[in-house]
């Protein structure tokens, strides 16, 4: 028996909106520690890892580990029917082939339940080791989204270079080139507007903008995004999910051949 009650139901709506274009079907793993997901995009170039810790739920009951295979587009459709301030409860029986989403309005005058069919999904689970990164950039998520959107009108790839001076996003396309440099800015008064660069050594990596733009669908979840870079490693683009967890996107770098 699984029963997870999330007062901030809007968070789950935002999580699904940020996942559904990248991944079609995925297993949500429920254990005593939390509600998590790990999935690759269909071309195996990007990976997403979601964790919502059990402590973040108002009520969290998970009698035994369960894997719920869901079509994320269909799940997003159902969650779209919840209001942003609704309380969302996810329920599933151990042997059931369906999951129920219950939406309660904050003053309890409207209660809805939506039942969705589960599916069997064969998924490859990857072990993600803790890595030391050469550079970690923390910046406003809206700024990062704007940069990715702007650059994708000019080129298909972005070169992210971190130096002492700041972080540079560059692209090139048929019509020309573009470079955007964001300098370190501690913004003590408004920490959500800060740009902080922790650099062990300079790093420069190339990525497909199509994926970066897809990751920025998570922008409504957090004011800040963390971009962790190391030569020859996938970039990690992380958005915090309130105080309860994170959504991390991993993207393999492009290599010159």
């Amino acid at each position: 028996m699984l029963e997870l009650r999330l007062v901030q139901g809007g968070l789950l709506k935002k999580v699904l909106e940020s996942l559904k274009d990248l991944v079609n079907d995925a297993n949500f793993d429920c254990s005593a520690s939390g509600f998590s997901l790990q999935a690759m995009d269909s071309s195996h170039v990007a990976l997403v890892a979601l964790l919502l810790r059990s402590e973040g739920f108002e009520h969290y009951r998970c009698d035994r580990n369960l894997s719920l295979g869901m079509n994320l587009n269909n799940m997003a459709k159902m969650l779209k029917c919840a209001a942003n301030d609704d309380i969302v409860t996810i329920k599933a029986d151990d042997a059931s082939d369906s999951v129920t989403f219950m939406f309660e309005s904050p003053n309890q005058d409207k209660i809805a339940d939506f039942e969705m069919k589960l599916m069997d999904i064969d998924s490859e689970h990857l072990g993600i080791p803790e890595a030391e990164f050469q550079a970690i950039v923390r910046m406003p998520s809206a700024e990062f989204a704007r940069i990715c959107k702007d650059l994708s009108t000019i080129g298909d790839t972005v070169v992210i270079s971190v130096t002492k001076e700041g972080v540079k996003f560059s692209t090139r396309g048929d019509i020309g080139t573009a470079n955007i440099v964001c300098r370190q800015n501690p913004s003590i008064d408004k920490p959500e507007e800060a740009t902080i660069i922790e650099m062990e050594e300079p790093v420069s990596l190339t990525f497909a903008l199509r994926y970066m733009n897809s990751f920025t669908k998570a922008t409504p979840l957090a004011n800040q995004v963390t971009i962790s870079l190391s030569a020859d490693l996938p970039v990690v683009v992380e958005y915090r999910v309130a105080e309860m967890g994170y959504i991390r996107f991993y993207l393999a770098p492009k290599i010159e051949e």
Partner: peptide, 14 residues
């Protein structure tokens, strides 16, 4: 040619 590498190449299968 610019090649995108598969993410599986970076992580161990668990």
């Amino acid at each position: 040619v610019n090649q995108q590498r598969q993410i599986t190449a970076f992580f161990s299968k668990s």
